[in-house]
Design a protein around this nucleic acid. Structure first.
Lengths: 219, 219
DNA sequence: GTCATATCATGACCGCTGGTCATTATGAGG
DNA sequence: CCTCATAATGACCAGCGGTCATGATATGAC
């Protein structure tokens, strides 16, 4: 009884790893469950003893990547210049994405509500939990920046919208394979650098009281 | 000969319209070619006299939407405050997206290089042509802003990266169905407003020199 | 009106997919 | 060694996008 359990778990890891390899080699959309199973030396039916569906595999891989990234971010110490730390984190995130385009594609795919509602509740909650942790990370950093006097205190949510949107955009860009049909070749390093600047500028300058509008109930 | 030709073109329009209706009602991923054909009162095989593939239908609908948007943008006059015009355009774009989420989903789907390379060259070129026109629109606006002294002259491409990324992000958000699992309900109007501010702030402040980021407080 | 011809519409058919489940193989316990 | 619970298997299914031989229809000459 013990041995079988061990073997079962081992197979699950093997399947996830194999699936990711296949996705990286041939594109996650094209790879079939049968191919993954064959590559792992396992019958197709067995895959469904471990995962409810192919999409469930997508979700687990996306979750693992997201968790690994978060773990990495949390090791970065917040110095005396939280906004610089934020820039550092942003660039770190972009580089992690660049190194793992397939995982980024999967993440984008799995974030869609339409996808999530098909998903088993357990995994859906895992996604939500991660979202919360990322929001927390951002808010902590923003608070630190306020405390250090780098920015004025203002509602954090609109700023998070901006940053989140920017991240979505970069993910879409990376998932799309960079600047495929762009006018001229684009260096991803330069792109990352400028986008990071754009974000920091947005945080500095966005939406305090510029002109019209009805928010600003800060504090 | 004349009648048949007319009827053929009419069918093509009918098919596109019907397909869009079906996509809006049941989700563009789930709808099958047979369903679209049935809804249009046409046999499945006939669909393939008009379109090389289901993806080709996606592409044509995305193109039509993109063209319609561009046409709309071009009617907005550039006043004495180009950056305000840009904000206006940005908000117009966001509202168009909100009113046409399915078209946004299709656009995102069709922009992916992997998708485009499967596409018939004619349609691919249409996408590239549109891209060029959008870039042009942005550059013209930026030039005008420089001429009016609203911003300093600086390389436009990095700024376009930022704006493009932001748009990708908003499209992803809208395609995802808004803020599905967000902490608390988010008003899209407020979201649009703040994101537009974020973009304008980014344009003002982003990336003038190497790593110097603080600048460009609102006027 | 009628027939020959060119053109188009049709739906049975194909290969392939994700997913199922009755059957078979295998380890654990007496 | 035998029994039994449990896990692995792959033939099988329904449904998909896409094809193509066949049948229907408009056209133009007479």
């Amino acid at each position: 009884m013990r041995y079988q359990n061990e073997a079962f778990r081992h197979r699950e890891r093997l399947l996830l790893d194999t699936a990711l390899d296949c996705f990286k080699r041939d594109g996650w959309e094209k790879v079939t469950v049968a191919e993954v199973a064959a590559a792992a030396g396992i019958a197709k039916g067995t895959v469904y003893k471990h995962f409810l569906s192919k999409e469930s595999i997508y979700a687990q891989l996306a979750l693992e990547f997201s968790r690994a990234c978060l773990r990495r971010y949390l090791t970065v110490p917040v110095g005396d210049h939280p906004l610089e730390t934020m820039r550092e984190l942003i660039l770190l995130a972009f580089n992690l994405m660049r190194e793992h385009p397939v995982e980024v594609q999967l993440s984008l795919h799995c974030e869609r509500p339409e996808f999530q509602q098909r998903l088993e509740p357990k995994l859906r909650e895992a996604f939500q939990s991660l979202d919360r942790q990322y929001t927390q990370l951002f808010n902590d950093l923003l608070d630190a920046a306020v405390k250090q006097g780098e920015i004025e205190r203002k509602p954090s949510e609109p700023l998070y919208w901006g940053v989140d949107t920017m991240f979505q955009g970069v993910m879409a860009r990376i998932a799309a394979g960079g600047f495929g049909e762009w006018r001229e070749p684009v260096d991803l390093d330069a792109y990352f650098h400028h986008v990071a600047n754009f974000i920091i500028a947005g945080i500095h300058g966005a939406s305090p009281a510029s002109d019209d509008d009805t928010e600003a109930q800060s504090c």
